[in-house]
């Protein structure tokens, strides 16, 4: 009896893990029906650019979700790094390299600041990162008040380069999936689940909760800065509001990607698939002839449904515990 129940429960949580992949398959099938022949390797190559920016932010958001936080500042960091790169990036090769590294460092520092104020002053993550979002996007506006700027062509070429027929973005996505597998097995990857699932237990078990939290925000900042760099190369200009749409979308990617504090499950691949789904929805709507006006409506509905789904999983999980449902 107990065994059967266990198996049932396990298959239920497994189902949850496969949901993003199933949604992706359904979207691809629908697109294939409406526009036969459109999905091929070239299409993948073209789309990968749009996917990678969101996937990077989505992975960062996933990690932050897993420690029970939220990082809204990704929007500000993306805008800021985008504007910074579009305005000040030098032409020479060493200059570009150093500048890119500097931008990634800014992302890390932005994340460290988020983590610091959240841990030190015990601020609620979303309100704390809301303020840093405002600060970074304000800084972006200071650099560039309207869309513009000029990006060195070398930089654009480097990030849009094709190795054979495979684009850098596609390679990076593949690399992220592999890195994800390593990360999940690493000490930080495990510490993060333990902090999210039982903070007191993790502390008693010898995990440094403060350090873990700050590190996770740092990673999120780093990934947001990387996303900002890619966006700069793709659009070849800067926009002070470039990152704003990423806030909702990155949360959506993380949630649809199946990460859940209640079950302790997360994966980079899931977050990437979540990002791909969010990006494809627009394409899907075009393909099926839904008005573009409906895009944001459907995005909102899908986000809320996905969150409801994960909160149902949590409810299912908690039913066996004697919790007071306030």
């Amino acid at each position: 009896m107990g065994n059967q129940k266990n198996r049932l429960q396990r298959s239920f949580s497994n189902l949850n893990i496969w949901i993003p992949y199933m949604i992706l398959a359904i979207i691809l099938i629908i697109m294939g029906i409406y526009q036969p022949g459109v999905i091929n390797f070239n299409w993948l190559n073209r789309q990968a650019d749009a996917w990678v920016t969101l996937a990077l932010a989505g992975i960062g958001q996933t990690l932050v979700f897993m420690i029970g936080g939220t990082d809204l500042s990704v929007g500000g960091v993306i805008s800021f790094t985008n504007c910074l790169a579009a305005v000040y990036m030098p032409q020479s090769v060493p200059g570009i390299l150093a500048f890119s590294l500097g931008i990634l460092l800014i992302g890390v520092l932005a994340g460290a600041f988020n983590g610091f104020i959240i841990v030190k002053f015990r601020l609620q993550p979303f309100i704390a990162t809301l303020t840093t979002w405002a600060i970074w996007s304000g800084a972006a506006l200071c650099i560039l008040s309207v869309d513009g700027g000029k990006v060195p062509s070398l930089f654009t070429k480097a990030l849009l380069h094709k190795f054979g027929s495979v684009k850098v973005s596609l390679l990076l996505l593949a690399a992220l999936i592999v890195i994800g597998i390593f990360f999940k097995a690493s000490r930080l990857g495990i510490a993060l689940v333990s902090v999210g699932s039982n903070e007191k237990g993790a502390y008693f078990g010898g995990i440094s909760v403060t350090r873990t939290k700050i590190l996770v925000y740092m990673i999120s900042g780093l990934l947001a800065a990387a996303s900002g760099l890619f966006r700069t190369a793709q659009v070849a200009s800067g926009s002070p509001t470039a990152g704003d749409s990423f806030i909702l979308l990155s949360c959506a990617s993380a949630v649809i990607g199946g990460c859940s504090v209640a079950t302790g499950y997360y994966s980079f691949a899931g977050a990437i698939v979540g990002a791909v789904i969010m990006r494809l929805l627009t394409g899907l709507m075009v393909a099926t002839g839904v008005s573009s006006y409906m895009t944001s409506l459907l995005q909102g509905v899908i986000l809320i449904l996905a969150v409801c789904l994960s909160s149902f999983t949590a409810l299912f999980h908690n039913r066996k515990k004697m919790e007071v449902d306030v």
């Binding site: 939220t70 979303f126 806030i247 909702l248 949360c251 949630v255 006006y293 409906m294 895009t295 944001s296 409506l297 459907l298 995005q299 909102g300 509905v301 986000l303 809320i304 969150v307 409801c308 909160s311 149902f312 949590a314 409810l315």
Partner: peptide, 18 residues
Amino acid sequence: LKVHPMIMTYGMNSILMG
């Protein structure tokens, strides 16, 4: 349904917009 207030209202914002 215990949806996080921020996600719910942000989602509602984009639903209203659409």
